[in-house]
Design a protein around this nucleic acid. Structure first.
Lengths: 341, 341
DNA sequence: ACTTATTTTTTACGCGCGTAAAGATTTGAA
DNA sequence: TTCAAATCTTTACGCGCGTAAAAAATAAGT
């Protein structure tokens, strides 16, 4: 295959018998050259595995084919999964995505955006940290780069927002819990990182009112992104203080629920919907791990595929020049019934 | 702050009152210019937030400051965590790391390496897929880019290998299990993706022989990287067929154990070391999630910090020109006693 | 075979910065 | 004050490719 190394496009062009500008055109869009020309280039490509210097390429292009995908915390399997999904869509659409994680740190989020900006990307898919985000930095970034916000909404910035319908999420699962047993308590962080949490609490209150039940919100302490541990500690406190007014607990998210399940286990409480169980626990998010908790966690799941497809499509359309007004798209979740509730 | 946009280094240089070559020198290494000069540049930087064009920078530099971090599966919290750890070390050392995931796909692993190569990185930290990896592609990549292999060893390629001492892992935890109860069965995948699994099986056999116990290896079917589901299904099969010869099961890794715990739950088996428990289950890896299983999982944990520090240091040293012979470093794990065994 | 539209070749310039070399300036120590 | 070492300025070239414009070649339709 590879004989000697090919230094540059000039050299590759002369080997393939095509002029350099045409070869350049080919690399920018293989379909922009005549089929026979394309065949000759690709034949030469098979023999000499040349790749254009991406730095020289991007230096002069008005718009690169780079895309940024930014999530608050890549070690959270939920974000890892949605990032993976988005990444593949970007590749299929002919872009070069780069993954970034803010690791839960607002200062790092700003740095990430600066780094990303310097890549002169064609666009970005951004899931902000939320409450802790530097709004002005986000807005400034959105002015420079076509950006679609997903997962958690921050003002009306960027091209638009795509995420889940948190009101529907909580209304739906609260409805389920009310119909199948005692009405749920709502278990949440006092100062949640993510603004979705507020929507979920409000939706819980609405749903309980609809049923004529008295709502009971347990807001636990804890800062940062270690939700499982926060849920576990908060769960221990709440359990030992008898804070739960019914035998059913709806958690603001799955990671909190996972921690609460551990607390229940550690207090010897059997969780589930069986008659031998002391308590029911449900989560929200459809976290990749929720299938494997003990008991498996009843939850309402994001529509991962639809969220990432919608987000990607909106961004691609905007990059292709379709101007649309700012728009928020919130997709419904699917109830996943398992043993925990 | 930012007045009008600064077009290039020429413009920024004249604003700061320093010549362009000196400014260029500053950006390549701030300490390479006189303190007063540095102060003047940084003062101008505060006022005009200019960043050099990274494409123009890297085009001519013999060596970029880029580093690649490649893991087999970023949605696995274990890899996500170690990638995060490595990323921060790279940044602190002044490099620009980029994260890549092979998503469990050998073809994608090759593509990732090609993409990474085109970034002309100063080096790479690579955790190969393992068994499924294209050895020749890996080797070729290592010839082009200073590469340190971590987590899972593939021949003697690259600068060296840094990972965990799987023999010590399994010997240690097997020893613990034998001393505290019935000797363990070994629960593993028949065709594991990761070569570490073979070492762990062998170490189990050795340890059992040392104690004079008959080993019992349960090798379950399943392909791919969905270890929890593989463990769950394999666990159901093994349990219902009475394949376990004692009440203790050592899993080849934590994700398999998590699936097995779910299977135990679904079969109504109480897991733990209490007298009211039917079965003991232990894992290996110190998976971020192992603290939150029910019961919390006894496991032997990678020394995340030490592995990533060693890996990063070896790579940085090699980039700085220190030539060392290929070397394999395997770090010991720490036993984490929890309720499951 | 002829016209016309499409594509390719030729030629040329510029992008933003790395980097080398020679001369000018500043620094710090004697 | 003097002088050598360190640092900076000036000047200049090149990297690999995008891209524009005009000329040449090819393809498609009649």
């Amino acid at each position: 295959m590879a004989d000697r190394k090919i230094r540059n496009m000039e050299e590759f062009a002369s080997i393939s018998g095509i002029s350099r500008p045409t070869v350049s055109k080919y690399f920018n869009d293989p379909d922009s050259v005549r089929a026979t020309t394309r065949a000759r280039i690709e034949a030469a490509l098979e023999l000499h595995d040349y790749r254009p210097n991406i730095y020289a390429m991007n230096q002069n292009r008005k718009l690169t084919k780079n895309l940024g995908i930014v999530v608050p915390l890549l070690t959270d399997p939920y974000f890892a999964e949605i990032a993976r999904n988005l990444e593949q869509r970007c590749i299929l659409a002919g872009y070069s995505p780069t993954l970034f994680s803010s690791h839960g740190d607002p200062a790092l989020e700003v740095e990430v955006l600066d780094t990303l900006r310097s890549l002169k990307p064609a666009g970005a898919l951004l899931a902000p940290l939320g409450r802790a985000s530097d709004r002005r930095a986000l807005e400034k970034f959105c002015n420079d780069v076509p950006t679609l916000i997903f997962d958690s909404s921050v003002d009306q910035i960027g091209l638009g927002f795509v995420g889940s319908d948190n009101f529907q999420f909580t209304a739906h699962i609260t409805d389920y819990l009310c119909r199948t047993g005692e009405p749920p308590n709502f278990f949440e962080m006092k100062t949640p990182a993510n603004p979705n949490a507020h929507r979920r609490r409000q939706s819980y209150l609405n749903a309980m009112a609809k049923f004529g039940y008295a709502p009971d919100v347990i807001s636990i302490d804890g800062e940062g992104w270690g939700f499982e541990e926060i849920g576990r500690l908060g769960g221990h406190n709440a359990l030992s203080q008898g804070r739960f007014s019914t035998n059913t607990i709806l958690c603001s998210n799955d990671r909190l629920a996972i921690g609460l399940l551990t607390a229940c286990y550690e207090q010897g409480l059997r969780v589930g919907r069986g008659s031998d169980c002391a308590i029911r626990v449900a989560g929200q998010d459809g976290h990749p791990h929720s299938r494997y908790t003990c008991p498996p966690l009843t939850t309402i799941s994001h529509n991962y595929d639809a969220v990432s497809k919608t987000a990607a499509d909106v961004l691609f359309a905007a990059i292709d020049g379709q101007v649309e007004p700012w728009k928020s798209t919130r997709l419904e979740g699917r109830l996943i019934l398992r043993d925990s509730a």
